[in-house]
Design a binder for these strands. Structure first.
Lengths: 267, 267
DNA sequence: GCTTTATTGTGTACAAATGACACAATCTTT
DNA sequence: AAAGATTGTGTCATTTGTACACAATAAAGC
């Protein structure tokens, strides 16, 4: 099962000694977590995915198995930490994928010849898997993406440029995006996805990316500022043939207070 | 594990022969579904729960295990069918519960002496369980609640009168309720929870129950009717010393079309 | 240095919605 | 026939949404 094929190398990179252990004793059987790690760069939403090396075609979401004495949420936190170095993430479960047809198998797993992987490992990984999806919002600049042994690379890829993803991972991404779109007024969008200081233009582009529609500049700016959750800083002297915009940062205390009740951005 | 203790009897009632089978061969290990089945009666939201007989104190949500060749969603549909007879339900997954501390064990399971239950069954059920929560909206009058062997009874209990629930089932209920409150504009609230014909008053009471706040009668009525999803019928000649209200039913086609985009009820 | 160009911050004006309350209509009880 | 209760709808002030306008200003071109 390609999915499991991937996971095992995630583990190898960080804790190679695990390969000498019995998966059945270590992990909850048949259950995994997959993380849709979302960032914002070049005015686009991007997600962190891993490219297979070897002859297997396809990229994969960062994911992993659940330890027997580990909370489900903790497994997702661990995966995020291992792939990005991010410690105190915004991370939220959005759906569990349990259809039988999600694990379309190929024979890639059988071809694997890596020291330490036994037929027992292969068999364990070939069982049916149910996976819980988590979405994380991060500042790309604060991430330190770490590929695993199996992967040629780990990369931030724009949502509209996604390559082939293994298994049902593209479906999982779609569900994650529709989740944050739906929950946009209750998620810490700006504060997690933007750098410390930003312009209103950048914030608007972020919202437009998620909502997939243009917003009126004037109205957006006025409505945002009226929320009274920003600190306005000295002018930004950037290289543009136009009036320089203010830089803003979030007032964390006011922001969190407002987040509880939600705030809407329709226009 | 009390949770599992319950599930086994759900199975016995419907397919007693299953007890002669090996759970490890039949079910996905460590994974269950729990259903929060919601109805509306006497102007109150109610949920369907099962009362233990025996000496175990506590009620439980209808739940069950997942067959090895069964979609996760299908397992929930099966549970709902077995407990209520409802065939084409509104059923939606809302969260998966995977904390280690959710399965506070007691020794009830060890005390069980029922024909066919072996120490192997007990051991299997004593493993750690992760459970996916589903919420269902049903017309109570169309349900035929069926208790299982373990239970004295199955009953519709008002949300504000819930007794002790086993494990983390009370937490699951809370999450389910907060889910439907949050998603109220995208869920088929009225069409699933009310009988075929109803008054605007009833519809309003339903919304007030979910939103946990009073709504203005005039504004609610006007806003609803403006949605143009109702058929208005001849007067209801009920026994009240006042003007008789109209009876309404949903125009299913228009309703479904509107549901896709969502519609809000703030006042 | 002056003009041009692009973009920002804010203003305005109309449309739509929300929210609070009013009142006649009408059904049963007395 | 009158009283009491609830419905269906009306009204209006307030808030919010939407579209567009315009002066301010920073950098680039001449």
């Amino acid at each position: 099962m390609t999915q499991s094929f991937f996971y095992i190398f995630v583990i190898m990179k960080n804790k190679p000694s695990l390969l000498t252990m019995n998966f059945s004793e270590l992990f909850v059987p048949g259950l995994s977590v997959d993380c849709v790690i979302i960032g914002f760069e070049d005015h686009k939403l991007k997600i962190l995915i891993l490219k297979w090396n070897s002859d297997i075609d396809g990229w994969a979401l960062p994911g992993g198995f659940v330890l027997k004495n580990e909370d489900l949420d903790k497994a997702a936190i661990r995966v995020l930490k291992e792939r990005t170095g991010v410690e105190l993430p915004f991370l939220e479960q959005f759906k569990t994928f349990g259809n039988l047809d999600r694990g379309k198998r190929n024979n890639a797993l059988e071809k694997v010849k890596i020291d330490g992987i036994t037929p027992e490992h292969i068999e364990w990984m070939n069982q049916r898997f149910i996976s819980t999806g988590y979405v994380s919002l991060v500042d790309i600049k604060k991430c330190d993406p770490r590929p695993d042994i199996l992967s040629e690379k780990i990369d931030w890829i724009a949502l509209d440029e996604l390559p082939n993803l293994i298994l049902d991972h593209k479906h999982i991404v779609k569900k994650a995006i529709s989740f944050i779109k739906n929950q946009i007024n209750y998620l810490p969008i700006g504060i997690t996805l933007l750098p410390e200081r930003f312009t209103m233009k950048e914030l608007q582009l972020l919202y437009e990316s998620i909502l997939e529609k243009k917003l009126d500049r004037g109205n957006f700016q006025r409505k945002m500022l009226k929320l009274d959750i920003f600190n306005r800083h000295e002018k930004h002297l950037e290289g543009g043939a136009h009036k320089a915009p203010y830089l803003y940062s979030f007032d964390h205390e006011k922001y969190n207070k407002l987040l509880e009740q939600g705030f809407s951005f329709n226009s």
